[in-house]
């Protein structure tokens, strides 16, 4: 999956500039790195998700939104309709349900998994669950907390004043 290089106007007065195209490949985990307001969530919502929605049925798309309390209602409703036996009260319950749903969906029709975890409290749990499965997966996450996950690729968001950020791969 590729996001072309270029200058993207995200909001009026806020742009993301990609000097080079970014490639997201199965088998890799990408951490988005940058301060508050550098455009990580905007990149996910305005560039990555629309690109992934093309040919959406080719993959299982797993998205955990930042400050996901509204998404929590949707997950609760989905779980109720699926007759999931455990009550969903917290983000952690929702994470468990999403992993359960992934299990069920992959048992019916295995597909590669693309996971996006925007400030999820437990990206390590998701990623270790994905690593234990046999389908190929790609994960993109951001977090300001100390999380130990091996073999990461980094994409940096460098603020250029308040008008936008430069987005590029970081070689570690």
């Amino acid at each position: 999956m590729k996001i072309n290089g270029g200058r993207y106007e995200i909001w009026d007065g806020f742009t993301l500039e990609l000097p080079r195209s970014l490639h997201f490949e199965y088998g890799n985990i990408y951490k988005l790195v940058g301060g508050n307001g550098s455009g990580k969530t905007s990149f996910i919502n305005r560039l990555l998700l629309p690109a992934l929605r093309e040919n959406w049925d080719e993959r299982y798309l797993l998205v955990l939104q930042q400050q996901m309390f509204r998404q929590l209602y949707v997950i609760k409703a989905h779980a109720a309709l699926s007759k999931y036996p455990v009550p969903i009260r917290t983000e952690r319950d929702a994470v468990n349900y999403m992993l359960h749903d992934l299990e069920q969906a992959q048992a019916k029709a295995p597909r590669p998994v693309f996971a996006i975890l925007d400030e999820s409290p437990t990206p390590d749990k998701f990623i270790s669950a994905l690593r234990s499965r046999k389908e190929p997966f790609c994960a993109v996450f951001c977090s300001h907390n100390q999380i130990i996950i091996s073999d990461l690729n980094y994409i940096g968001f460098e603020k250029a004043g308040t008008s936008g950020s430069m987005v590029h791969e970081i070689n570690v």
Partner: peptide, 22 residues
């Protein structure tokens, strides 16, 4: 602190997650 000018007519959906918390 945030470099972001706000007024009562600012759209809170245009703030980042961290800016919302601040």
């Amino acid at each position: 602190i945030t470099g972001k000018e706000i007024t009562p007519d600012s759209r809170i959906t245009e703030l980042s997650g961290g800016q919302k918390v601040m």
